[in-house]
Design a binder for these strands. Structure first.
Length: 211
DNA sequence: CAGAGGATCGGCT
DNA sequence: GCCGATCCTCTGG
């Protein structure tokens, strides 16, 4: 996919993790991403945040969009790992996923929430409503609205595209990462494939799910 | 081609 | 906590 020129100057600490530095396996990436920094360059607006909540949708998962094979909507899930899969949900919100596994395998990690770091005023403006700092990108739909992530980024290669990538962050202690069942699904509800950073107010969902 | 059902959000009770 | 908005996608006939 052609990547429009980005005018953001990205500080050295926001240098992208290359494809080879990102786990290929779905559940492994979901856990790895907690504490990493999501970087969005929209024109000349730089926005970043610490990833605090993810969900894994692995190969063969009955709750995955890829469960019935490739379709027009989910084709980005079948790209090799580190591509964006973006779709519209409930006619109102977009969701951002990062593809996993080898090309031809349909699997991805849903990025559910970040704690804003840089560009919070831009994110707040994108949200178009008054919210507290920790609410700016809490929840998958809110995250996409805050970062101006939409269908134009579907299929983007995070290893190449100048508009969206993942950078390293302060690695949380392993006991600081919690696991739980996933939110808003109706199949394979028992799998504990949601990961979150304990104690972060930017984590979405019922408090009881994030002790 | 019709109909059901969403990996959500926000307002209201 | 419950419910409606909103519209696209997939499935089945």
């Amino acid at each position: 996919m052609p990547a429009p020129k980005s005018r953001c100057t990205s500080p050295p600490d926001l240098q992208r993790l290359t494809r080879d530095e990102l786990p290929v396996a779905t559940v492994e990436l979901a856990r790895f991403l907690i504490g990493c920094v999501l970087v969005r360059c929209d024109g000349d607006e730089l926005m970043t945040g610490r990833i605090v909540e993810t969900e894994a949708y692995e190969i063969g998962d009955p709750s995955s969009h890829a469960r019935s094979g490739p379709t027009k909507r989910n084709r980005s899930m079948f790209a090799r790992h580190a591509h964006a899969y973006i779709y519209l949900i409930y006619g109102t919100s977009y969701c951002l996923n990062i593809s996993t596994e080898a090309e031809g395998e349909g699997a991805a990690v849903l990025v559910r929430a970040i704690e804003p770091l840089d560009g919070i005023e831009t994110m707040r403006r994108n949200r178009g409503r008054a919210v507290r700092d920790y609410e700016v990108a809490r929840g998958p739909g809110n995250l996409c609205r805050a970062l101006a992530i939409g269908p134009a980024l579907d299929g983007a290669d995070l290893d190449v595209d100048g508009r969206l990538w993942v950078a390293a962050g302060a690695e949380p202690a392993s006991e600081a990462i919690g696991a739980s069942v996933r939110i808003g699904i109706t199949r394979a509800v028992e799998r504990e494939h949601r990961f979150y950073l304990r104690g972060s107010r930017a984590v979405s969902g019922p408090r009881a799910l994030s002790p």
